[in-house]
Amino acid sequence: MAEWIEACAADDIDEEDVIRFDHAGRTFAIYRSPDDEYFATDGLCTHEKVHLADGLVMDDVIECPKHNGRFNYKTGQALRAPVCVNLKTYPVKVEAGKVLIQLD
């Protein structure tokens, strides 16, 4: 049951940045890449339950604000210790200035 949910306005997020989006008891991180594309992942780091939206986006990488674990937010791949479990990603589309993410 693929459901598209409106997460935020496209210009709520700066380029190369991230914001937090909570929905139905879950938390997500929505990213805008330096080349102006949008991505979404689970909101919490897979190492400890820390909100990734407080972290730093550099190119394709989100760095956890607590222990500097890193993920590629486009693929969810874990890149740097202490994280070793990949991050779940979600499909994203932008329509009429709104960022929509597809939840499973």
């Binding site: 820390v50 909100h51 407080d54 972290g55 730093l56 760095e63 604000p65 607590k66 500097n68």
Partner: peptide
């Protein structure tokens, strides 16, 4: 509170 200063300290 929480990680409010984390990103700026990292920068």
């Amino acid at each position: 509170p929480g990680n409010t200063v984390a990103r700026d300290i990292r920068l």
